[in-house]
Structure formats: structure tokens, C-alpha cells
Design a protein around this nucleic acid. Structure first.
Lengths: 137, 137
DNA sequence: CGCACAAAACGTAATCATTCTTATTTACAT
DNA sequence: ATGTAAATAAGAATGATTACGTTTTGTGCG
């Protein structure tokens, strides 16, 4: 997902393109991993004085809804990152820096037989730890 | 994990066995799935007038620390269930009733090769949806 | 049994992330 | 340029969780 694609997506859904929205996209574009609402707020405060929580959360949810961001929950806080739209996969997530690494295997194929009468809506497979950079630091 | 095993575990760690602690164990023994702190508080309020949040959360964390309970995060709320100590496995979790079904496959075996230099600390594999009972209801 | 002491529980306030509300401002199609 | 729906501000409200000073209660030991 690139910034241009994201803006295009917003337009397609009839949403406006504001400076703050572009800045939020730029933030996640640079981020390369999961970030919290708080981190985003801190970043936006540098450029915008008196940025409101509401603006941040509203746009995070909007971006999640239209598929620009994906989200996960960690330590009671929601974390967001640019959506990997291309194909289904999972992530290793660094506990220190939030950066992610793509994991190719998805266990769902092997699972179906266990859950005959069950209605599967969603699944989560994440690996947590330290990335090479944070490990050696 | 049985109530007796749990009490034994507490004693081994030098923790006292109080009426409330036994009631909490009984609650999870009967629960058969993930429950929230709120649900537990509601249950305890029936027997104990003026039960304190502190008591509930302190004991939930204690139980988690000594391995009586395991925990997962769902919709911004922590959920707890009796720990399945016997062997490593994962769960299907019903979004309606919180009941779980054991999933035999663990994807970690197939993953190691992707993460050479990474330090793996933990992982999570959960499937969400509706159990047969809630599906037909 | 009863005492002493540490652990547990109380009651409540504080905190943290997130959501809601109302009024005002802004982007963008016409 | 203007009207209008969307976006934002500012801060209060909410919901889950944690923290704190005080009081109560298990439990080991004489």
C-alpha cells in the first residue's frame, strides 16, 4: 500500500483529502511496522498545535474500515500499520520497535477439519519477540 | 487444571487460600471458556457485598502469574480461562459465549526457518467465530 | 486455643486508552 | 465564489484497569 493508493482509496469512498490525513499516511508509510495512536498523536503534535484525539482515532478507524490500515491489539493498546493488501499472510512483531516481518505459513488450511459445525469469522496468528536489530542492541 | 491443583499451586507459592479465591476458582471451573473481569465481578457480587475491583484484578493477575489462568485480549478487554497445562495447543474462541475448542495444529514448527536471527518469545494463534450452539441460536 | 504478623481485601481515587458531543472550520463540487 | 457535507477542535465522558492507605483475615507457632 502506497500513499497514492491510499489517497485514491479515500477518494473512491468519497472521503476528503486533508493535510492531516496525508500526514497520517506519511507517518505510517515511514513507520514500517505497528504504531499506536499515542505515537501518531505525538508525531502530529509537532506539526499541528492542538490536534484532537478525536481526529486521530476517527481517521485510524476510517483507514481501518477502508482497508488502508490493519490493526492488532497488544498490551491493551491498539496498534496500526499499513495494510498488506497483496496477499494473505501473518507477521512476526518486534516488541521493542514494532517492526514486522512477513510469515509465509498460514495454519488455517490444516485446521478446517477440526471445526466442522463451527462458523469461522476470523483468525489471528502472530509471533512476538525481538528483531535482529533490537536483539543486538 | 482442577480446583484442587490450583489450590495446591497457590500453597506451593506461599499464597493464602481464602473464600474469595476458592470462589474465583469455582467460577472458572464452571466457566468452560474465556471470561472477563466484569463477568467475574458480577458473579462475586452475588455472594460478597462490596467486593473490590482490586481484589478481583489482583487475583486474576496472581492466577495468571502462577499459571492457573491463561489470558487473551479481545475487544480491548482481557479474557481469562483455566490454563490447559497438559500440552501446548491453541483455541477456537466463540465470540458469543466465550467457550473454546482445542485446535491441535501449531504453526510454529513450520515457521522457524523464516526467522533465523530473530528472538522468538511468544506466539498467538486463535480462531474466532461462532460455536455450533451459538450459530444455531 | 489464641496471638502476631504478613497477606488479602476494602473503598475509593487515579490513570490510561478510547469514544462521544457540540460548535466551528474546511474541502471540494457546482 | 459559494453552499454543503465532511472534518476538526476542545474537552467531557466512559470503561477497563491500576494504585493507595487502611482495615480485616489466614495461618503458623507457642
Amino acid at each position: 500500500m502506497s500513499i497514492e493508493e491510499a489517497i485514491e482509496l479515500l477518494k473512491q469512498h468519497g472521503y476528503k483529502t486533508t493535510g492531516k490525513r496525508k500526514d497520517i499516511l506519511a507517518f505510517f508509510s515511514r513507520a514500517d511496522g505497528y504504531r499506536t495512536a499515542k505515537e501518531l498523536i505525538r508525531h502530529l503534535e509537532e506539526s499541528y498545535d492542538g490536534i484532537s484525539f478525536d481526529t486521530v482515532y476517527r481517521n485510524l478507524h476510517l483507514y481501518n474500515d477502508v482497508g488502508i490500515l490493519e490493526t492488532t491489539e497488544l498490551n491493551g493498546e491498539k496498534h496500526f500499520r499499513f495494510n498488506c493488501t497483496d496477499h494473505h499472510h501473518h507477521h512476526f512483531i518486534c516488541k521493542d520497535c514494532g517492526k514486522t516481518k512477513e510469515i509465509s505459513v498460514c495454519p488455517m488450511d490444516a485446521v478446517q477439519s477440526d471445526l466442522h459445525q463451527y462458523e469461522i469469522e476470523d483468525h489471528k496468528f502472530e509471533i512476538y519477540g525481538l528483531c535482529p536489530a533490537c536483539k543486538s542492541a
